[in-house]
């Protein structure tokens, strides 16, 4: 019964895993021509490339902005939806819409909103007397635009997970707290938050892993050729450009290995740290 999955995973995932590591030690040029073993040359090139360091910095910035904002907003909405309100399932569907919509369709609209020449945002800005900007080409705003879209699409999904976590907390705790005269905020800080830490932990891990792999938004809103790509590209975007725009597949494999190592390191670190704040009883 496990044969199809095991064989499929073997061919398309297990073998590729080792192949990437092997390829990262080879010089592979255009048309997949393997020009031989080069040791750690790709890694040396990678770490001495200023663009790579800028890319890493960009990626960490994405994580630092997108992860907490998505988490807090998702938690906020989940808590609001948990107060006995009417139309819960309608709210849930609507909030979930951005999360299930094709990134290409979504970025088309957002790109138009942020467009520097005929964008909606600029119409609003000039309408209230503020200067228009080239939002997506401006070094100080282009990354922010991508973050806004990412947060907009994240909130609904993680809200549903957090809401389910909140609803899983036994009503008895709240009843006891009410008898003791606890306020809404006290109930949130003393009951909801601590008992929700396993779910929050899961959400944080998923958010970090997915944010580290940001690609669609950057590809679709900035594009590979724009000037702004330098200060917006993520590690995955850099990987994509190395492999397919510059046909340096050995080098791209080294970038992929680095991405994997970083994500693994962060996940292991989080697993170690969870004892300090995650409450499993």
């Amino acid at each position: 019964m496990i044969a199809p999955v095991t064989i499929g995973l073997g061919i398309f995932y297990f073998y590729p895993f080792f192949r990437v590591i092997r390829d990262s030690l080879h010089n592979i040029g255009a048309f997949d021509r393997d020009q031989g073993f080069v040791g750690f040359k790709n890694y040396v090139t990678m770490f001495s490339d200023a663009e790579m360091w800028q890319t890493l910095l960009n990626t960490f910035k994405y994580v630092i902005i997108i992860v907490p904002c998505s988490l807090l907003l998702a938690l906020f909405v989940a808590v609001l939806l948990n107060t006995r309100i009417k139309g819960l399932s309608i709210f849930r569907v609507i909030y979930f819409l951005p999360a299930i919509t094709m990134s290409v369709a979504v970025s088309m609209v957002w790109r138009w909103i942020f467009n520097g020449d005929y964008g909606i945002l600029n119409s609003i800005m000039t309408g209230i007397g503020l200067p228009a900007r080239q939002w997506l080409n401006d070094r100080s705003t282009s990354m922010l635009c991508i973050c806004i879209v990412a947060i907009w699409s994240n909130v609904g999904y993680y809200m549903i997970i957090l809401l389910a976590g909140i609803q899983g907390i036994s009503k008895g705790y709240y009843e006891a707290a009410e008898i003791d005269g606890a306020s809404g905020f006290q109930k949130f800080y003393k009951i909801t938050l601590p008992l929700l830490t396993p779910t929050i932990f899961y959400v944080v891990i998923m958010l970090i892993i997915s944010t580290f792999q940001t690609f669609d938004g950057i590809y679709l809103m900035i594009g590979t050729k724009a000037n702004a790509i330098k200060w917006t590209q993520s590690v995955v975007m850099y990987f994509y450009r190395s492999a397919f725009d510059y046909s340096k597949k050995g080098y791209a494999s080294a970038v992929a290995v680095l991405l994997f190592v970083i994500i693994m390191a962060i996940t292991v670190f989080q697993m170690k740290m969870q004892k300090k704040w995650v409450n499993y009883d």
Binding site: I209, Q213, V236, A243, K249, A252, S253, F260, M264
Partner: peptide, 11 residues
Amino acid sequence: MVPGTFFILPQ
């Protein structure tokens, strides 16, 4: 545990 992008080139 491995990010999906990792496998893309050999795939």
